[in-house]
Design a protein around this nucleic acid. Structure first.
Lengths: 189, 189
DNA sequence: CCGAGTATCTCGATGATCGAGATTATCGGC
DNA sequence: GCCGATAATCTCGATCATCGAGATACTCGG
């Protein structure tokens, strides 16, 4: 009686993409499993970030912010507090506090734009770069290990797939975010 | 002058898996881009969850918890507060508060195990199932759309890849979490 | 120099999380 | 049947990230 009675086949299709609906054909199984794996991967990646951050006395948001700062600067266009807030979905007040924390800890530094002195550019500091390295290196090693098991043509397929999934997810993110800002329209009008 | 001046080739290799190091061969480019896409996908997925949760008056953690509860129950083994805390990296106190919130909102309900009455099983309620459906359905539609562009053999490759990546990430998660619990050993020993 | 617009920061309130300890229940040995 | 050890959950006070409205600093066109 410890074992639950409900079988998978009886469960409702909660997900809309077959995660819990019947999976008869091989293809349907594949689709469902890939979707589930992507979800697991994302959740686990998130928890890795959380755990790593705490291990170094930071919150999960702080690590994300540090990475965003580095991404932006290494891409050649340092990020501003405003854009960082957009990326992380934080209010302006939270962003200031976040930057204060990271700056106090020596991970990043502020720099006012000389042209438009309202703007602040965020740059990573030595300590921040070191932390990011410690975070990414083991991940990179693992990634390389996995990818070693695939041929160039196979990675090409994976890349095409991931590019499409990423684009779709980003679109969806913007949709959901837009839904958060719009509803403030009154009924009737 | 709006365009960034720094070239990729000059940037340090911060990531350890070639995200910012030179990418000469086609294969190296592939590896780097796939890694970057996985990262973007995870971050965006996280933000989708965050935005959707807030849209419905929940915190990001609450949605994750609701999904975990459903996953467990639909897989046939309802989750307990203890395990939920492990999965989400929360303290016991936070888990109780979390469950209180979700129960008060009508998303889940508590149920004591009849055999071991210390244990509490978490079950999703109607309102929780409806919310999860609303969350997953558009994601499922998008996933199906993307996958429609791939043949069975190609999805097979993607599946093998994602299975390996997911396993590797979970391993890494456990490694990082273990690092958080162990270091309480004094120097020298 | 003025006023509208923009970027960032300040500050008080809220709420999620932590962590130590209390509570309730199980289990094995006697 | 009772006891101590162990386990699972819950309670409670403290802490800290976040929110959001308003203040401040700056730009730009007229």
């Amino acid at each position: 009686m410890l074992q639950p009675q409900r079988r998978r086949e009886e469960a409702a299709d909660v997900t809309g993409h077959g995660m819990y609906r019947r999976r008869d054909t091989r293809r349907e199984k594949l689709v469902a499993e890939i979707a589930a794996e992507l979800r697991r991967y994302s959740v686990d990646a998130q928890h890795v970030g959380h755990a790593f951050a705490n291990l170094h006395g930071l919150g999960a948001t702080d690590l994300q912010a540090l990475i965003a700062v580095m991404d932006a600067e290494l891409a050649g266009q340092p990020i501003t507090p405003g854009r960082l807030g957009e990326q992380l979905s934080l209010s302006s007040g939270s962003v200031t506090a976040l930057i204060d924390r990271l700056e106090r800890a020596g991970h990043i530094r502020r720099d006012r734009d000389t042209a438009d002195r309202r703007k602040v550019f965020l740059h990573y500091a030595e300590r921040g770069a070191a932390l990011a390295t410690d975070f990414f290196r083991p991940l990179g090693r693992r990634t390389d290990e996995v990818m070693a098991g695939f041929g160039d043509d196979e990675l090409e397929v994976v890349h095409r797939f991931m590019a499409a999934m990423t684009a779709s997810m980003r679109e969806h993110r913007d949709t959901v975010r837009a839904a958060r800002d719009e509803p403030p329209r009154r009924a009737k009008g």
